[in-house]
Nucleic acid binder design. Structure first.
Lengths: 227, 227
DNA sequence: GTCTATAATCCGATAGAC
DNA sequence: GTCTATCGGATTATAGAC
């Protein structure tokens, strides 16, 4: 029955999320399912087919985190929620985040089945849509959405993967703060002048105790300089 | 003799650069050296010791690419050459680039020996030095060098690792162009106003055939808007 | 459908002959 | 110093009994 196959897939996801891809063996999977290894071959042709089903689950989860952003009512709101969804997916499911960045050869296969390739293309299209509509709405400077997407993606992915691999030497709170500060700088560079002003007013305002932050002071000097 | 140990290390580097870390076994290494596996244990206590020597070679190469930047005669020139060195190291030695980002547990060990930790710390210090002197020279806005280093690092590493994993869908030329454009945007956000103007003049000039680039036109409009 | 048993490969590492 | 032979373990996958 497909019921047992579903149970196996669930265990396979648990196993991957626990031990990663190197520790993912049919024997361990069988132990987790509660049967012996050969029994798995009734439902799956081999290890490769199981892994590909796990990849599909990773994409499904990834997409659900991103596409909830479409509930936002303005281009700005959709973009904000998309970025937030991306970050939350990476933080809440680090192993699945790593999985959607795997290439076929890292799974020991020649190429992905077409349906998985399609999921990747859809995510890319989603981001291009977000950027395109922000440009049309006058929030971002007119530019090639593909190139801007690359910049945003590299910045976010770099931050996240350095953090996840322990190279930043900060805790999650420090990481979120650093990423937010860095993202603001980056958005200001790509935003139209009017939207950049909004961003700065929003982010570089005053601290809780009423003192202007050093960054905000500096920003003000800079704005006075160019005005 | 240490001569044979050196020969083994050379073969070990070749093997790692060819097959990566998963394909790195003592048996394969022995085949490459031209002896049988047990002979290796005359020179190395085990696989772990060999791998750590390969890591040391990776850091040695990495450092040599970075530290040549110290030959530059101004803070700006040293920074430019450091960035160029980082990029060239990543492009010319992708596997060694990956290796200097490995964590102990990805090598199956508890922690790195002290001398390797020291090499990592030295590289970080090198970058903080570059940023500190650019701020002192009035090229970059005064800021926490550690945080700015994080931003630069994340952006570059993100670009490079996405490119190396084939996720950008561009060739090396397109990659270098996209990275340069993206870096310029980022530098403008962190530079002092006078230096940012220099950067823009340098990068958003005219194309070879005398036509202003669309980006340059846009830049000009933007500058007129804020002036 | 599931089991036991097993084939065929890989691995790191060691003992002991030469 | 290098070899042969081997131990003890992992893995994917299959054959055949129940």
């Amino acid at each position: 029955m497909s019921d047992q196959r579903n149970h196996i897939l669930g265990c396979a996801c648990d196993l991957y999320l626990e031990d990663g891809l190197e520790g993912f063996s049919m024997r361990k999977l069988a132990r987790q399912v509660g049967v012996t290894a050969p029994a798995l071959y009734r439902y799956y042709e081999g290890r490769e087919e199981v892994v590909l089903d796990v990849v599909r689950e990773a994409y499904r989860e990834f997409s659900s985190f991103l596409y909830q952003a479409l509930e936002g009512r303005t281009p700005e709101e959709r973009m904000r929620r998309a970025g937030e969804g991306y970050l939350q997916f990476a933080l809440q499911h680090p192993r699945w985040y790593q999985m959607v960045f795997l290439l076929p050869d890292q799974l020991g296969i020649e190429s992905f089945p077409e349906d998985i390739e399609d999921q990747g293309a859809a995510v890319h299209q989603f981001w291009v849509d977000r950027l395109r509509e922000c440009m049309d709405a006058g929030l971002l400077k007119e530019d090639d959405p593909d190139e801007v997407a690359m910049t945003l993606w590299a910045h976010s992915h770099g931050f996240i993967s350095l953090y996840q691999n322990g190279h930043l030497g900060v805790d999650e709170e420090g990481f979120q703060a650093a990423l937010a500060a860095s993202s603001t700088r980056m958005w200001c560079g790509m935003a139209t002048e009017s939207f950049a002003r909004q961003i700065r007013e929003r982010c570089c305002g005053e601290t809780a105790d009423g003192e202007p932050t050093p960054a905000a002071e500096q920003q003000r000097e800079w704005e006075q300089g160019v005005a």
